[in-house]
Simulated assay, not measured.
Amino acid sequence: MASDKPSPYLVDAVKASASRFKETKNALEARQKELDALRAELETQRVEMDRQAERLRTEREDFQKEKEQVNAGRTSIDHDLATVRMDRERFAGEEKRVQDWARTLNEREKSIKENEDRAKRLDLELSSHLKDSESKIQSLVEREELAAQRERALADTIERLVGMERGVADRDKKLAKREEELIKLQNERLHALEGREREMLKISEEMYARQKESAAQHESFVELQEVFRQELTRLASERERLAGKEKSLVEAEKYLAAALEASGIEIETPPEIEVKAPPPPPTSEPRAPKPPMAAPTPPSRPSESFRDEIFEEEHVESRPKVSRADALERMTRALETAKKARDLGRNVSEIRKVLKQARAAFESGDYDTASRLAEEILRELEAIQLAR
């Protein structure tokens, strides 16, 4: 029947499981074979290991025997080394003893040499001391001889001193007499000096009075000097002012000359006037009062009046009727008007002559005539202009 047939899926699964089982069985068989081979190899290796263990046991026993022999040899070597060390220590002690003996011998030799040197030095010192003592004994003998000679000389000098004392006593007596005479002379001189001192006191009082008078005179002289100094300073200021005016006038003259030259009027230019600065006033400081014999006497009244007259004359001379600046100003105005007239065609030959005269008067210091001529020129020119 169709329902009794197995399904194909189950058949395939059974086949697959059977094939898998076969494969696993084959793999297990191959693994079993490998395990058998490994087991055989392990057996062979175990046998070899047993053999090696026996060999090692035998070798260990041999090594133990050799070790015992080595230990016995080492103990014998240690014993020999100990004996060698003892011998070395004994030899070292003997060497130290020998060195100590050598040192002691060297020290003894040095001490012997030093003792010999000391003995030589002592011999030399003793010989030098003996020589010194002999020389000292000789010097003592010589000194005793010199002392004896000096004692003799002292006895002679004592005798001389006794004679000199007698002479001194005589001189003292003479000096006492002279002192008495000198005391008398001193008393006389003292009386004379007292009289002279009195005279000097009188003279000093007179000199003091004269000094007072000279001091008063000096004070008056100082006051006069102050007055004179003030006057000098005032004069210096006046001179400076006049110098400034002169400078301005010189500049105006230069301007006038230039204007005349420009206008064609030939006028000789005067030489330039050098305006010097006024000298500074002398500074006279009041001096200390001199001794009474050299004290200056006060100035007299006529000198003061003469000084006042000089100052008055200077004031009068320094104040002219027409000043220089005014005259110069009028001349410049006349010159300008003459220029204008010339430009207008006027004949200015006469005016030129008058201007020359005014210039000459100005240069000579006659400012009145110069200003008068300038005014005449101005009046004439003004009259001409009015006539036109």
Rank of each mutant, 00 (worst) to 15 (best):
I137S: 12
L193I: 12
K65V: 12
H218D: 02
V141N: 05
S127V: 08
P302R: 02
T75M: 06
K177V: 14
A82V: 03
K247V: 15
R241V: 03
T44Y: 04
L81T: 02
L140D: 07
L235H: 04
K131M: 09
A358P: 00
R239S: 05
M164F: 08
K245V: 15
D50K: 14
E180W: 08
E61H: 10
D343A: 05
E109I: 11
M164P: 04
S318L: 02
E34A: 11
K321Y: 12
S111T: 12
S303H: 07
R46A: 15
Q69P: 04
M164E: 15
L124I: 11
A325G: 14
K174T: 13
I203S: 12
A13Q: 13
E317G: 07
E253G: 12
S284E: 10
G264Q: 00
L56Q: 07
L10Y: 09
E261M: 05
K136P: 01
F91K: 15
R152S: 14
L260N: 00
Y255R: 14
R160Q: 13
L182F: 05
R55H: 13
T24W: 12
R171P: 03
L344K: 14
A341I: 02
Q64F: 06
Q99V: 09
K120S: 11
S204M: 11
E251H: 10
E94V: 03
N347F: 01
Q230T: 03
R39I: 05
A18N: 05
E180P: 00
D172V: 14
R229A: 06
K33E: 07
L378H: 01
L193F: 05
I112L: 13
D80Q: 10
E59W: 04
T297H: 06
T332E: 05
R352F: 08
Q230V: 04
A53C: 02
R241Y: 03
A358W: 00
A53E: 04
F306I: 05
L38G: 03
L190C: 00
K177Y: 08
E304D: 07
E246G: 10
L355Q: 01
Y208T: 09
D117N: 09
H129G: 09
Q230N: 05
V84Y: 09
E41D: 09
G167H: 08
I310V: 15
P289Y: 00
V162T: 13
R150W: 06
P291C: 07
I158H: 10
L140I: 07
E68H: 06
P289S: 04
P278Y: 01
I384F: 14
P302Q: 03
L146P: 01
E194L: 09
R88L: 15
S300L: 05
K321C: 06
R287P: 05
S19Y: 08
E107P: 01
L105I: 07
S133C: 04
L10G: 08
V227Q: 10
E59R: 13
K202Y: 06
A192V: 05
E134C: 04
